[in-house]
Design a protein around this nucleic acid. Structure first.
Length: 289
DNA sequence: AAGTACCCCAACCGCAAGAAA
DNA sequence: TTTTCTTGCGGTTGGGGTACT
């Protein structure tokens, strides 16, 4: 019966000559021009009025995910990765909600990032992406590492500036807690503190959960309220000897100096390479013993 | 050079909620 | 109040590109 029904649907679509698959340049231009003149919304009507042989749904998706002028393209930045990890930790697969905090990024793009990058690493680590182990690995290893890299990159490229309330700021407070401030767009800056990490050695950071953070962690773009993460991480001192996680001690000084993940300048993906995975797998095995 | 495997991402699908008739 | 339509969301798929053998 289901097959017959789908054939009916397909038949009606064929009657209307509805197109599917990749959009052509002409279709894009038609959609852009129509929306420029008439605005968006009422997608089924729009599709018909614009002379597009597409469903309203398809038009809406094409516009929101690709043609909108404010859609950002290109790699997900380190700051965006960090934000995605944190927000996903809070809300799970609420992609549209997460996307609200990453201006110009679509829920589809974030979802794709999560599925292709993050889930891949969980798979390599042979642990469930929803498991506490993986979540803690993200929280206590991946996220601090991202913060480190953001600071390193910023320290070598950015002249410290006075606080810009309209842009996000990654700063080091007097007690070296990493904090965010702002409306979460995509340009982190390092505060003027000279303690901002910039060492290529990655070195050794003791990371511990914190129960309180600067109240300017971030602002909800919808409600305008400040959000404070439930628990996060902070280096507890300036020079650290090791990273701790709920699963044990991570002694970076004992690692080979050329271990990829302690090098700077790696790409967003290269952090999770084979060596890292082997290392983390070993930690997980040890912890379970 | 050819074949295969893998990755990424645009697009589609089904469902649910809300709005309109 | 019920039905129909529209919109939005999250999950899934398939094609193109790239890396590897």
């Amino acid at each position: 019966m289901a097959i017959e029904e789908s054939m009916v649907v397909k038949g009606s679509e064929e009657e209307m000559n509805l197109r599917r698959g990749p959009w052509t340049v002409d279709e894009d231009l038609s959609l852009i021009n129509y929306i420029a003149n008439h605005g968006e919304g009422r997608w089924n009507t729009l599709a018909h009025s614009a002379g597009l042989k597409r469903t309203g749904k398809s038009c809406r998706l094409r516009w929101l995910n690709y043609l909108r002028p404010d859609v950002r393209r290109g790699d997900i930045t380190l700051e965006e990765q960090l934000l995605i990890l944190e927000l996903h930790n809070q809300w799970g697969n609420r992609w549209s909600k997460i996307a609200q905090y990453l201006p110009g990024r679509t829920d589809n793009e974030i979802k794709n990032y999560w599925r292709t990058r993050v889930q891949k690493h969980a798979k390599h680590l042979k642990c469930d992406i929803n498991s506490k182990q993986f979540k803690d690995t993200v929280r206590y290893l991946w996220m601090p590492r991202l913060v480190e890299r953001i600071q390193s990159a910023a320290a070598t490229t950015t002249v410290p500036t006075t606080a810009n309330k309209s842009s996000p700021t990654l700063s080091t407070t007097t007690n070296n807690a990493y904090t965010y401030s702002n409306n979460l767009s995509n340009n982190f800056e390092v505060g003027s503190s000279s303690t901002a990490a910039s060492s290529d050695t990655f070195g050794t950071h003791e990371v511990s959960p914190i129960s309180d953070l600067s109240s300017d962690y971030y602002n909800d773009p919808i409600s305008g309220n400040n959000h404070i993460p439930q628990d996060y991480y902070q280096p507890s001192q300036v020079n650290y000897d090791c990273i701790t996680s709920p699963y044990g001690l991570f002694d970076f000084q004992a690692m080979e100096p050329n271990t990829p993940w302690i090098q700077s300048g790696d790409t967003p993906d290269s952090f999770w390479n084979v060596d890292n995975n082997i290392f983390l797998q070993q930690q997980l095995i040890n912890d379970s013993m």
